[in-house]
């Protein structure tokens, strides 16, 4: 199974691969969440929800359910 943003550990980075176009909020794309961009997990709230990420320079908090829809390739 491929990894998603929800699988990142704190401080870990990944490259966005793809997501389900139907369910991902357009707003997220507009804020820079596009395939090929880098994503870093800055901090996670208790129970890993919501997640505080840095996507391509945009610092955002997204919910776990959204994070699980964004597939990434984890950079070590």
């Amino acid at each position: 199974m491929s990894k998603t943003i929800a699988d990142l550990k704190r401080g870990q980075r990944g490259i966005i691969k793809s997501f389900s176009a139907e369910t991902i909020p357009l707003k997220l794309l507009e804020m820079g969440c596009l395939p090929g961009n880098e994503v870093e997990l800055v901090q996670s709230a208790p129970f890993r929800d919501p997640l505080y990420v840095n996507i391509n320079g945009s610092h955002l908090a997204i919910r776990n359910e959204t994070a699980r829809q964004i597939e990434i390739e984890i950079l070590t």
């Binding site: 997220l28 804020m31 919501p50 610092h59 955002l60 997204i62």
Partner: peptide, 10 residues
């Protein structure tokens, strides 16, 4: 709004 995306400003 059905989604939750919040900017964490500087």
């Amino acid at each position: 709004r059905s989604y939750f995306v919040i900017e964490m400003p500087n």
